[in-house]
Design a protein around this nucleic acid. Structure first.
Lengths: 233, 233
DNA sequence: CTAAATTTGTGCTTTATAACACTGTTGTCA
DNA sequence: TGACAACAGTGTTATAAAGCACAAATTTAG
């Protein structure tokens, strides 16, 4: 199975979305300098407060990015899927990591030394601009999320989380089930509420025929209603 | 007075912190292409949902950046002081503005056409990198703020707001009064609470000898305690 | 394959904070 | 100068959501 996993792994050039803006030299350089790392489910990839050493690209699996808050409550900032980058913000800002990243399921990560990454950023303008764009988009999303999480009520926050998950991970073949199975606790940490309230609110949504549940599998039944709840707060 | 104002105004090259990474050609280009705009107190500079047209640099005054939330509640994202840039995130992300900016006091703004700004970003790598750095720092701050606003209690949120204001605007000559006078409502919108609760909590801080108040003038008396409250939540 | 640990689900209680309804104060401008 | 608006302050009530306790179901591990 491990073998199969490896053979299925896409090379860096297919997973790195900014590959095409690199010069042939830079590409060759990258091919020789990245390393591959495997993480088991729940294994930590990097931790809040640590010095960043690598820019990372998720090759396979799913990871969650979160911050430890007050009194063991944690806030999931975002969930990543293959092809997405992480761990580079702290490198650029010259800070320590301000989030922790753990493998949500068994995952493969390509790592690029911070110095290598910085060197390309500083020499290839198109590459730099791509990350500027990405960061600009993320910053907008982060500010929007702040208001969503602080001002909306429980139902609105959970509705929003479900819509974000669907948008990010898509649906399974049945065209309804969201392609990621989260524990109630993670769902709560994503929506800024307690586990009990996540459970209760999910049940309410089922009663209101807005979603259907089968364990951790969640289907969106009445999308329109869900959007409405998410907008109203 | 208006005349005095103008004569006091620093030219673009002194206020634009990234000026030194520009080529002589770019500098000349900028000198000829920026425009100066004056805004009265409470006047809107740009509005959420609008198409961005200019990158802006605050030359004098103070402005607040905020998002309209659920039911006329607004969340102040940040307060700017002269020398800081704004309005460029939406240009880079190719989105409409997701925040509204209004002059908090009479302010002067240098504006640079979006196309001009983008052109320099795309041709001058050092310039691009400077904005990448700035955005990386802001993104970290935004995520930290999300957790602060969602998980801390009222006292912690207000304490944090006061510390941020002091850090950003500094102190007056007396070495204690924070150099910005906000209404209780703005203080509330900064700390995600209602105006009544901002008033009440400020009074509590005064009773606890943590701060001193004189109208809108706020002095931090017991900084250590304030930091402690802000950390504990 | 059983025991332990984790996750899910539910009801009850408590509490933080919003909402509301006032009163007093200050500032503005016609 | 007097009227009106905006702001500051306070008490009371209402309520959303946290906290807690516990049972049932499911997963993990020895």
């Amino acid at each position: 199975m491990a073998k199969k996993h490896v053979s299925e792994l896409k090379p860096l050039e297919e997973i790195l979305t900014v590959w095409d803006v690199l010069t042939p030299d830079e590409r060759q350089f990258l091919r020789n300098s990245y390393t591959v790392h495997y993480f088991k489910k729940n294994e930590m990839i990097h931790c809040e407060g640590e010095q960043p050493t690598h820019m990372m690209i998720l090759a396979s699996g799913k990871v969650k990015v979160f911050k430890e808050g007050v009194g063991s409550r944690s806030q999931i900032i975002r969930m990543l899927k293959p092809g997405e980058h992480f761990g580079y913000r702290a490198i650029i800002a010259n800070e320590t990591y301000n989030t922790t990243v753990t493998a949500f399921e068994a995952s493969t990560v390509y790592m690029l030394k911070a110095a290598t990454f910085l060197s390309i950023l500083r020499h290839n303008n198109a590459f730099c601009y791509r990350f500027l764009e990405e960061m600009a988009t993320d910053l907008g999303a982060s500010d929007a999320r702040t208001v969503n999480l602080t001002q909306k009520h429980i139902r609105g926050r959970l509705a929003e989380a479900l819509l974000i998950l669907r948008k990010n991970y898509g649906l399974e073949e049945d065209g309804a089930t969201i392609s990621i199975y989260l524990s109630r606790e993670d769902l709560a940490n994503l929506s800024n509420m307690t586990t009990s309230n996540a459970i209760r609110t999910l049940s309410n949504f089922v009663n209101d025929h807005i979603i259907a549940m089968d364990g951790r599998k969640l289907k969106i039944i009445d999308e329109e209603q869900l959007i409405k709840i998410s907008k109203m707060g």
